[in-house]
Design a binder for these strands. Structure first.
Lengths: 189, 189
DNA sequence: TTGCAATCTTGAACCAGATCAATTTCCAGC
DNA sequence: GCTGGAAATTGATCTGGTTCAAGATTGCAA
């Protein structure tokens, strides 16, 4: 919970009263490893803030192969935004990869908080802008880099991730097969 | 200009006075075909709204090949959000593909308008959310579909685009070579 | 501690899509 | 209405990455 308050206060300042409102309105939930927060075919009712742990969002192709589209660790928000906004069914699943502590925010609660704490809209706007900017860069990387380049880029920029995430998930996140991932790993130890 | 006002009023309602403020503050600019609105290496100072025409955002790999990351037609906003937010240099270029009429919005003007027309923050927030949602779906499609599937999906969902955009740009947008695009096209006429 | 299931590795055959090179078609500007 | 350059097609060849199948490792549940 303090995790989120600290994160918010990186962008806007909160009065004592506002902090009280937030603490009263929001609550953290603890989940085991491999707990499903969203199952493909359901509506994505929440935007999840990770206080502690690690989540991922993924989907299945018709042929049954699984593809991870996003990871989220401490201080990241994660949700299927299209489903979250429209309340239509999501093609994605979201699950914990570690025992995790998250805050689940619904659109209603979000609106409520934004009216009680006007500043908060600015925080949410910033978060969404940053998420969009990150998505733009991810699209660029996927187009720009070969598998090997993606692998090298990722291992050098986010080494901490590799410890926390199974290789076959990393492989599907970067857009190639587990076998090829293993070969790249061998290549540059 | 009315194009933007209409677009805004799909999401929020504006008073006559607010419309006046908008008309006074914003202006449309007309550009020839192939006009560069942003050159790679510069800061992206504006978020562009397309009243009429067509823009694209693209970048170059070291090997010199060009990759289109986004198109924008009427009623779409386009910018390199990371550069726009941080005012750091952008790796992208933005150019018109047709004679176009656009509204260029700077972060300062955006803030100014948001204080004069509080409702407008909601509009901008919605636009960004939708853009983020679209980017999430784009990433999903790029992971989910083979070249041929992407091609079929795109031609069936956005046939109007194909008329307006050169094939080699479509090819790089979908993530493959112009030659392969041509072969796919032949395959399914 | 053991046993089983999930994950990771390795090899060999294969293929979607790239690259290179040679025409052909399409236009924008004179 | 030419004409030169950009865009599109087509064929031949090549390769990054997949797929399939068979072990080797790991890790966790009982």
């Amino acid at each position: 919970m303090d995790q989120l308050l600290a994160h918010i206060q990186q962008y806007i300042s909160l009065s004592g009263e506002e902090i009280t409102i937030l603490k009263r309105t929001l609550s953290t939930t603890t989940f085991d490893k491999n707990h499903k927060l969203l199952e493909a075919g359901e509506v994505c009712h929440f935007n999840y803030f990770v206080c502690k742990g690690c989540l991922r969002m993924y989907f299945f192709k018709e042929n049954g192969t699984e593809h991870t589209t996003q990871f989220a660790i401490e201080n990241w928000w994660l949700s299927d935004y299209l489903s979250y906004l429209t309340q239509l069914k999501s093609p994605f699943s979201i699950e914990t990869l570690e025992p995790s502590e998250v805050i689940a925010l619904s659109p209603d609660t979000s609106d409520l908080l934004a009216t009680e704490i006007p500043q908060l809209s600015k925080y949410f706007a910033l978060i969404t802008q940053r998420a969009y900017a990150a998505a733009q860069m991810r699209i660029k990387f996927l187009q720009e880099f070969s598998g090997e380049e993606l692998f090298n880029h990722f291992t050098s920029h986010f080494p901490e991730f590799l410890q926390r995430v199974p290789q076959y998930m990393m492989a599907s996140y970067l857009g190639f097969s587990p076998e090829y991932y293993s070969r790249l790993r061998k290549k540059t130890p």
